[in-house]
Design a protein around this nucleic acid. Structure first.
Lengths: 328, 328
DNA sequence: TCGCGTAGTGTACACGTTTACATAAAGAAA
DNA sequence: TTTCTTTATGTAAACGTGTACACTACGCGA
């Protein structure tokens, strides 16, 4: 592959200096004579020149790349958020690099290093795992943004997400108000603070009246299916299940279908996230609606917003709501 | 934000030259004395130094970024492919930048320019739209890779995907063998060669015996719903519908459900792609299985493989199969 | 005439790397 | 001792930009 033309090639062809070409491409056109402008333009076109973002980044000591780390790229809610973020960033001239930590702390740390190597404008962490490296980075830099799960208590950084405790609480209240019995919480991994907050909220909402069966579970359909199959082996009860996210709920649902159970007659299922395919493929699922498509604009605002100073309150709390469908 | 430490800072702190530090980080450690090695390591750790990928890219005149352009980031099959590609690239030390053209030729061209600006190692195009800019880039560079839809005839470039004609043909044959009547093809946008090939294959498979109703339709659930509602207004026939992808099929299904139609008694639906959520949320959908998770390794191979020479045959055809479920 | 402001352009350096080449020290062979 | 080889390290020149500063030419007012 022939190496791409540089600013010097354009300068030579149009008979001006590199400074003038640079001015042309950085939009400082008001200080250039019209005929010069035109000769630069045509030279650039003839060579097929596009300014090197690498050279520019080096010179300006900042890049236009934002890295987003997600724990599971196949999670539908995650995909919605990623689409939203990509779109919002594009509109302010930034590119998104998406990377999957696969719920693995070691991978996360490696990807954090990569992001640092890219001199990313910002690093967006969905479901961050608390590691020494993460703590160190959040102290040394201030370009970390946490999404939907707050970092560990010691870490201060910008945050975008819903109030997990309040959302869990609302579901708990709903259970009580509707007199649900045999309550079960299939919650997410303990090491995710956001997940624990949801659970705490739920338990608080339920109150002391009822006992709640609790199970820890990965945020996947497979894990939900496995957990659901175990639970539903006992068909003597009508369980009321609060799942930590929709993926788990799908798994539980499948387990129920295989046992020919009916919703909500034999089983109540409550999910969390309400990703966009629910309306189409899971129109039965009652769940907590989290506004996935508001995350992008919120994150763009945090990145573009005022710098460091009032670090502590750079937090955007998004609203949630309950989407009541057939399963509850 | 304090600016990140440079190789010079590390050199100064450990009392060696930048060359030695560079050698350390590029793995040329065999030529460094053990005690020097250790002093560099500890200096780098103390400063929290990570080599700048930007400086490195500039010096080496190549980046470790691969850009992938997709027509619709919310398409579930696209998401599967993206996850696969990201994973495969990561394993060979590359980062993926994902960008959404939203089926818009102008946006595609802008993103192509951005990718060129990033000096991307490769540009992967899913559902490329034939524009002058695209043609020019494919002539000038050779780092374009086309996915699942062949570029326009004039463009020669590496390709990964299934044989769309053969897949369509197989579905057509299936329709004939099962004696389906009232055949309908809801195909994708005409300007996508891949989509047309599927349709052509389907018609060839059906043969001259039956007449086929044809509708053009965007690759979305919404469009499928709209098209399906229109078609199913006439309840006198039992239609047999071949949808250009699963998203369209979901839309048609929803339209059918709203009319209380039953599958396959009142209606036959055939999809295309078989993304991974089908097993969980659409266990009724008969469809063509395309191995989404084989795309990543195939693309990684094309990128890492031998360079330019036999350009013309750098093509990887993946196998497809029919997944027969309840809807047919 | 001189002085001065302004519009348009060029010169040259810095940004953070990698690496060819030079150099220095320390044996090994003579 | 001298010469050669080997090992460890340093020097310096790129890579493609952006921009501070310098410079020229020109018009205008005094």
């Amino acid at each position: 592959m022939a190496k791409p033309p540089t600013i010097r090639d354009v300068a030579r062809l149009s008979g001006v200096s590199t400074a003038t070409v640079s001015r042309f491409f950085t939009g400082k056109t008001s200080a250039i004579a019209p005929e010069t402008l035109e000769s630069v333009r045509s030279a650039a076109e003839e060579l097929g020149y596009t300014p090197s973002e690498i050279g520019r980044s080096l010179r300006l000591a900042n890049s236009r790349v934002v890295v987003m780390l997600v724990p599971d790229a196949t999670n539908l809610f995650t995909a919605d958020v990623a689409a939203s973020v990509e779109n919002a960033l594009k509109s302010i001239g930034l590119s998104l690099v998406l990377a999957n930590t696969a719920e693995n702390a070691e991978k996360q740390d490696r990807l954090l290093a990569d992001a640092q190597g890219l001199r990313a404008r910002a690093i967006v962490l969905q479901g961050a795992m608390d590691t020494p490296r993460l703590r160190e980075m959040s102290e040394r830099q201030n370009n970390l943004i946490f999404v939907n799960r707050r970092p560990a208590p010691g870490i201060v950084a910008p945050y975008v997400g819903i109030d997990n405790f309040a959302a869990g609480f609302a579901v708990g209240r709903y259970f009580v108000e509707h007199g649900y019995e045999n309550c079960v919480a299939i919650h997410g991994p303990r090491h995710y603070p956001g997940s624990s907050r949801r659970l705490e909220g739920f338990l608080a909402g339920i109150g002391d009246v009822r006992q709640v069966l609790q199970f820890e579970c990965a945020f996947t359909m497979e894990a939900g299916y496995e957990r659901g199959s175990l639970l539903l082996a006992d068909r003597s009860r009508r369980y009321s299940i609060f799942c930590a996210n929709d993926m788990i709920a799908y798994g539980v649902y499948r387990a129920a279908m295989e046992k020919s159970m009916r919703i909500p007659d034999d089983l109540i299922i409550f999910g969390f996230d309400d990703n966009r395919v629910n309306d189409w493929l899971a129109p039965w699922l009652t769940t907590v609606k989290v506004p996935a498509f508001d995350f992008g604009p919120a994150i763009a605002e945090l990145i573009n917003g005022p710098p460091v100073t009032n670090q502590h309150n750079r937090t955007i709390i998004l609203p949630f709501s309950l989407t009541i469908r057939q399963s509850a």
